[in-house]
């Protein structure tokens, strides 16, 4: 087998083409992370890391953050997959309208979104009033200012991150494969499950990883919709940086978060590599 088949040949143009993005990455990612790292060990020891990893507050907040990120990713998947499917099979007009709605949260400030959720989900919100009027409940449901509220708010914002990768993969799936499956004796459901779903898994994993990792760093939504009771690690970092000026500890916590995010993303990739070979 020739070298050309085994990998990229390392000739001039390839290196030149790789240099610019590499510099960008170095400048915009590696350098800040290195600076962050230097803050975290500013005392010449790992005291900040030790505190971040042993202090009950930070451990609890880390666990809560992971839990919320997982739940948000799971809900986004459950909602996003059918949504992406709907958009993928919709006519261009309906797809455009769908995307506009999907992207609405991006164009709305977090405060406006929060008020919108209050109007909908608040104690005197539309939903609670309707349910009370219908006699379905006799106490308003606590849908805001707790973990439920945070999850609802985060799912709203992050849904597009799930939908887009899945949608783009779905659009690339050869529809003829579904026809082929049906021609070979599969019911539409079987064709969907056995052929369509496996072929869209790369999009699912891309979306889930994206949503999960972004969730880990969320801080405005949990601060506003969590009623103060839901502490995610981003909120904690923000407090350390802005309020306490404890940049060393903030950096240590941020690095642990970064490592966790990278680790989980790498783990997902590794777990799924065997299954993603067709893409």
């Amino acid at each position: 087998m020739s070298a050309g088949l085994l990998g990229l040949r390392r000739d001039g143009p390839a290196i030149a083409m790789g240099t610019v993005p590499l510099l960008f990455l170095l400048l915009l990612f590696v350098y800040p992370v290195a600076r962050l790292l230097s803050f975290s060990v500013e005392g010449g020891n790992f005291a900040h890391f030790e505190k971040a990893l042993t202090d009950g507050l930070y451990v609890q907040v880390f666990l809560e953050t992971l839990r919320i990120a997982l739940i948000v990713a799971a809900i986004c998947l459950v909602l996003g997959y059918p949504l992406a499917y709907g958009l993928a099979i919709a006519s261009p007009l309906w797809a455009t309208i769908g995307f506009a709605f999907l992207l609405l949260p991006f164009w709305t400030s977090v405060l406006v979104r929060t008020y919108a959720w209050m109007i909908l989900l608040g104690r005197n919100g539309l939903l609670n009033r309707t349910l009370l009027d219908l006699g379905i409940i006799d106490q308003p449901l606590a849908l805001l200012h707790n973990r439920t509220g945070v999850i609802i708010g985060m799912v709203h914002v992050l849904l597009p991150y799930m939908v887009f990768p899945i949608y783009s993969v779905m659009r690339r799936v050869d529809r003829q494969l579904l026809s082929a499956a049906e021609g070979l004796g599969a019911s539409p459901t079987q064709a969907f499950r056995r052929v369509f779903v496996p072929l869209t898994l790369p999009g699912v994993f891309a979306g889930a990883t994206l949503v999960f990792v972004i969730s880990l760093g969320f801080f405005i939504t949990p601060a506003l919709l969590g009623g103060g009771r839901v502490m995610m690690i981003g909120v904690q970092i923000e407090r350390l940086v802005r309020q306490f000026l404890d940049w060393g500890l903030a950096a240590a916590v941020a690095i642990i978060l970064l490592a966790a995010a990278l680790g989980i993303a790498a783990l997902l990739r590794r777990l799924l590599r065997g299954d993603l070979t067709w893409s």
């Binding site: 405060l111 929060t114 008020y115 209050m118 109007i119 608040g122 104690r123 005197n124 606590a142 805001l144 200012h145 601060a223 506003l224 009623g227 103060g228 009771r229």
Partner: peptide
């Protein structure tokens, strides 16, 4: 029920009867 974080939020909670 709410530990508020921004000034805008504090008054809004009463306005919305939250």
């Amino acid at each position: 029920t709410v530990w508020w974080t921004t000034g805008a939020q504090s008054a809004q909670l009463l306005i919305d009867k939250e």
